[in-house]
């Protein structure tokens, strides 16, 4: 197992190097004079000089890359050209919002997708299967922001059931240490605020979770159908096991495997989708920050966000692969 993890970690190194080259190139292929392209309307002669110095634009290209790489590894991910705030500091205040939203969407998509997929698989070809397949088709065909806007109109504007903007009632005052409000409100002993946070989370989670929901439903259905036809499931029934045991132990323990991989791959889509979802729901997270950065031509922020999101994606999938190996004894011993 340990060797497997080490091997996977080593395999990530070329990808990380490729990523750094790509993002290094990104800032340098911006059209025109880098000073104009990067600083835009914020440029002053002093700022330009500082930028040239900071990026090492007068050095040979390979030296510039090495210095970018070293800085990045040491945790210096640049700074905003608008307000000179270091990326990392600002990112850390924004990221909890994105985590909360992503986890909400994951809980929604897994919590609904897996039961739906199992249900459809049990009734293959029936009307319920058709309905579930139809819903999942709709889920992959509706853009996050269109669904988000629709949810805002229906549940926010027309029905008025749920809040449609922000993460928490703007008037709430309490001690937010971690930035993950679900946790902070509980630690502050404010159950009322916790409920408020959950209410704020519902619509964005549904909007962001719709695509993963559809994909997880499909893969669960397909996987359960495939496993249910395996010989060992017939063996399990021939031994006189209860149908529930056959289902939970023999079918699901195997059907999980492809589902875990797919869930891991959804994390990239969720982080990307968060950019759109946070815009629709005025959600204070990294996504909205990036959109602001695009408007302000604050490219170092875009650059480093891409880097961090890609690294998160790689880490999550490493964890998923290790989890897969733990679930699947065949891989574990190879």
């Amino acid at each position: 197992m340990g060797r497997y993890i080490v091997r996977r970690l080593l395999a990530a190194i070329p990808v990380l190097i490729g990523l750094s080259i790509l993002l290094f190139a990104y800032i340098r292929i911006l059209p025109g004079d880098p000073c104009v392209a990067i600083l835009g309307q914020h440029r002053t002669p002093e700022a330009c000089a500082a930028l040239r110095e900071n990026l090492g634009l007068d050095l040979p290209l390979w030296q510039q890359y090495i210095s970018y790489l070293l800085k990045t590894i040491s945790g210096d991910l640049g700074a905003s050209v608008v307000n000179s705030q270091p990326f990392v500091a600002e990112f850390l205040t924004r990221f909890p919002g994105t985590i909360e939203l992503t986890i909400g969407a994951l809980i929604f998509s897994i919590g609904v997708g897996i039961p739906l997929g199992r249900l459809a698989a049990r009734k293959v070809g029936g009307w319920l299967d058709g309905l579930i397949t139809g819903v999942s088709l709709f889920g992959v065909s509706i853009p996050v922001f269109v669904l988000g806007l629709a949810l805002v109109v229906i549940f926010g504007v027309i029905l008025g059931w749920l809040p449609t903007q922000g993460r928490i009632d703007a008037r709430a005052r309490f001690d937010a240490t971690s930035g993950i409000l679900l946790v902070d409100t509980l630690f502050a002993g404010r159950l009322d605020l916790f409920v408020d946070v959950v209410r704020h989370l519902i619509l964005p989670s549904i909007a962001l979770g719709s695509i993963p929901l559809a994909i997880i439903t499909r893969i669960t259905r397909a996987s359960v159908i495939e496993v249910a036809n395996e010989d060992y499931v017939r063996t399990a029934r021939s031994k006189g096991l209860k149908e529930k045991t056959v289902d939970n132990r023999h079918v699901m323990r195997n059907a999980w495997l492809p589902v875990t991989t797919v869930v891991g791959l959804q994390v990239g889509g969720l982080l990307g989708g968060a950019v759109l979802t946070e815009t629709v729901f005025v959600w204070n997270g990294v996504g909205r920050w990036v959109v602001d950065a695009i408007e302000n031509h604050d490219y170092p922020i875009v650059q480093s966000t891409i880097l961090v999101f890609a690294v998160i994606f790689l880490i999550v999938n490493l964890i998923v692969d290790v989890g897969y190996a733990l679930l699947n004894p065949k891989i574990r011993y190879q």
């Binding site: 395996e230 017939r234 063996t235 029934r237 006189g240 096991l241 495997l257």
Partner: peptide, 28 residues
């Protein structure tokens, strides 16, 4: 009924299948 039949399977009538590679559950 299914439950009565279940009690017959395995305890009164047991089965062995063709392919032992696929007839045992790989993850248990």
């Amino acid at each position: 009924k299914e439950e009565e039949l279940r009690q017959v399977r395995g305890s009164e009538i047991a089965m062995i299948f063709q392919d032992p590679m696929t007839s045992l559950n790989p993850v248990l």
